[in-house]
């Protein structure tokens, strides 16, 4: 997984509540056996008109937000299906950090597996960052994971909380599976115990 350390970039505001994963990437784009190339389908229904042309009013179709690497989103972002195609599409588009008042659990989890940093901040703070984002190229936000701060264009620093384990995995780009496999003996011992106590459980 690509590590996430520090990011300085353009932020786009999409402050609607309950943006579900069907809106992030509709089901018909999931007919793939790859993780890549999904960026063009990101926010498909909002981004394109019925004839397939870009909707010039949609934020990610405007300069400079076409280059956005940070998304300021609304409450319950990423609700709905567990499709990891949602973070894959965001990542493929270039979004590496999402800031929202609240995320749906599975989406939140999926972000970390793909080097995307989801940051929870109160609605009022998100509102301020959304205003910054509207300033476009003149207003880059900086996200420093190590120090756990978002730096506003005016230099003000906003602290955010993150689970220490997830922070380390992101900073170092760790492979979860390798990490778990280091405990293979413990897993084997657990299975042996369960097999005796609950013979039906392990099939």
């Amino acid at each position: 997984m690509q590590p996430f350390t520090k990011l300085s970039g353009i932020a786009a505001a999409l402050p609607l509540p309950n943006i579900d994963t069907d809106q992030i990437i509709p089901a018909r784009f999931l007919k793939t056996i790859k993780r890549t190339g999904l960026g063009s389908a990101l926010f498909y229904a909002m981004r394109y008109r019925a004839d397939g042309s870009e909707d010039p009013d949609f934020i990610l179709n405007k300069e400079p937000w076409r280059q956005a690497q940070i998304l300021i989103a609304g409450p319950n972002f990423g609700c709905g299906s567990s499709r990891e195609h949602a973070p894959w599409a965001l990542c493929d588009f270039g979004i590496r950090c999402i800031i929202a008042p609240e995320f749906a659990d599975i989406f939140y989890n999926n972000c970390f597996k793909n080097g995307i940093l989801p940051i929870k901040l109160p609605q009022a703070v998100c509102d301020v960052l959304a205003e910054d984002a509207m300033l476009g190229a003149n207003a880059r936000l900086t996200v420093d994971l190590d120090r756990q701060v978002v730096v506003r264009p005016n230099g003000e620093e906003i602290r955010f909380e993150i689970d220490p384990f997830r922070k380390r995995c992101l900073l170092e780009g760790l492979d979860d599976i390798a990490l778990t496999l280091a405990h293979a003996d413990k897993i084997a011992a657990y299975e042996a115990r369960r097999r005796t106590a609950e013979p039906w459980a392990l099939g």
């Binding site: 993780r35 567990s82 499709r83 599975i106 989890n109 999926n110 597996k113 979860d176 599976i177």
Partner: peptide, 10 residues
């Protein structure tokens, strides 16, 4: 509970 594809692999 539901999981993403990376967790399916895990």
């Amino acid at each position: 509970f539901g999981i993403g594809t990376s967790e399916v692999e895990h």
